[in-house]
């Protein structure tokens, strides 16, 4: 499982970095989205990988922390997903405005 996750994060990051260095605005946005997926997976992995472990402690009785997954990174990922989603939407609007004003989808606003 560790290997699959590590490969997934690596491939997403690599593709994302390659895409944000491209000259077209749409490629940059897709690249940033891929990067944010990679970062979300990374945050999740920082809570250690566990199979079949719930994050919520049942009511009543003392709980053994070793039986449970770390809930904090999951909460962080949730926040990070929401924020990056909103930022991508905003960037799309800016992209459309730039396309309308400059008549090109080059990141610098001209084909130069």
């Amino acid at each position: 499982m560790e290997l699959v996750l590590a490969l997934g994060i690596g491939i997403l990051t690599g593709s994302g970095v390659w895409l944000i260095l491209r000259p077209r605005t749409f490629q940059v946005i897709i690249g940033l989205s891929l990067l944010s997926y990679a970062v979300n997976l990374f945050i999740y992995a920082m809570g250690r990988l566990r199979v079949d472990a719930p994050a919520i402690v049942e009511r009543g009785g003392a709980a053994d922390p070793a039986q449970y997954a770390d809930p904090l990174p999951q909460a962080l990922v949730l926040t990070a997903i929401v924020i990056s989603f909103a930022m991508t939407a905003l960037l799309l609007v800016v992209l459309l405005a730039a396309r309308g004003l400059t008549g090109t989808d080059h990141v610098d606003g001209d084909e130069g």
């Binding site: 944010s36 990374f42 945050i43 809570g47 730039a98």
Partner: peptide, 27 residues
């Protein structure tokens, strides 16, 4: 709008770096 496009992209990438750093520290 052109400057905004650059600014937003750079700062989204920066925020991702921030997240990586913060989660590594937490890890």
């Amino acid at each position: 709008v052109t400057a905004g496009l650059h600014y937003v992209s750079i700062n989204i990438a920066t925020s991702l770096l921030f997240l990586i750093g913060a989660s590594l520290t937490y890890g």
